[in-house]
Amino acid sequence: MTMERQEKQRSFGFVAPALIWTCAFFIVPFVVMLLLSLAHLEGREIVQSFDLGNYVKIFTEPSLLKGIFVSLEITLTVTVISVLLAWPLAWIIATQVPERYQRLAIMLAVLPFWTSYVVRSYAWALVLGQNGVVMQSLIGIGILDEPIQIMATRGATVIGFVHFFVMLLTLTIYSNLIQLSPNYARAAADLGANGWNTFRLVILPLTLPGIMTGAFLTFVLCIGDYITPQILGGNNELTMPQLIMLQLGRRGDFPMASALSVVLMVLVTLAYAASSRWLKMERV
């Protein structure tokens, strides 16, 4: 018994530094932020008033409230499109590509992952701009007469995001697919299922964990990202991270920025609750 207790004490000693670090630099800042969201700005001074003024403002002032909807709309659009594009790609790599080339195919599929995040958005700005490759080629082959505006619209933001998350989702769905025994598809066919039924009733449900893990990551990273909408989406409609940065930059309004952050976190928590039964976070 004492041996066991000693062992436990020692183990706790191993965990303690990481716990202390996480508490000091993650939990404490979060609590401070939570308290700060209940304060308000008077001139340039932060006054702690313990009221919900900022939250009331977020849900009543159209420019702020719109940010929540813009962020949610973009994030959900991106998540759905990315899953729809990534699933077939992951499936093709897992089933159609010869086994010894699969690792290469997956590495290629996620290669642009390793460009700098800022640079990637910049590259899309180059590609999608009025004089960019896409417009020039479309005009060149006669589909368009003159360039259309994509840059600085929601479309550009969505394209930039989808590019990033197709890679991420291909990875999570692929690793889910190759763990499945080929006998599942054989068993379904054996019992008389055609291709569509095998996909619908067996393979798709079996890849739900991979899809949901990837979709949740997509949601978290997408809704909290500042760079992509800032570089590609312009300032016509602002997402929540853009609004948060605006509060910080223009007026130094930390209380409002904190309140917006808390709302953002609540949205992520709701997304987690919605997908938690399929998530295996340890496997990420």
Partner: peptide, 24 residues
């Protein structure tokens, strides 16, 4: 609980982590 606590920052936007640290 400890495992959850250690994993938790993964589910929070970098922006929020940055903002929290900045205020502290």
């Amino acid at each position: 609980l400890m495992r959850g606590l250690l994993i938790a920052p993964m589910t929070v936007s970098y922006l929020i982590i940055a903002l929290g640290l900045l205020t502290v």
